[in-house]
């Protein structure tokens, strides 16, 4: 499995799956934190697209937990909030980027590809 999409919005999950499918990137989807954690530990994806606002357990917490499960996992955050949220991301997490909603599909796919192609150890640290 290449990518797991963790987003509580059904539309976003669907559209991300469609976009990844176009690029032949295999993916699964999770609706909330616990489901996402479950998916990461079972399916060993290389990258997780995580919505920051996820309901009970927020995306920042989920990212921290899933990175512990798989140290090579890369994170791509999507959020409906503006860049203020960047300051809240825990330093040291392998975050590829924070993409604001509504996103440009091509740019998002570009980031995903970069993440999947990069060797594990060159994963970028958390955004400044």
């Amino acid at each position: 499995m290449d990518v797991v999409v963790i987003d509580d919005d059904e539309g976003v999950r669907w559209v991300l799956q469609q976009a990844l499918a176009v690029q032949n990137i295999s993916c699964s989807a999770a609706r909330n934190g616990p489901e996402g954690i479950n998916a990461v530990s079972r399916q060993k994806p290389r990258l997780a697209i995580v919505d920051i606002k996820l309901g009970a357990m927020n995306g920042l917490d989920v990212a921290r937990l899933i990175c512990k499960i798989d140290r090579n996992l890369k994170i791509l955050f999507v959020t409906g909030y503006n860049e203020v949220i960047k300051g809240m991301v825990e330093p040291g997490l392998p975050v590829l980027g924070i993409v604001e909603k509504p996103f440009n599909v091509a740019e998002l796919l570009q980031l995903v590809r970069q993440g999947l192609e990069a060797p594990d150890k060159t994963a970028r640290p958390a955004v400044n």
């Binding site: 559209v15 469609q18 996103f103």
Partner: peptide, 12 residues
Amino acid sequence: NPLATAKAAIQL
């Protein structure tokens, strides 16, 4: 959220 989906749908 819906905006993101809508925009992505158009791009797709």
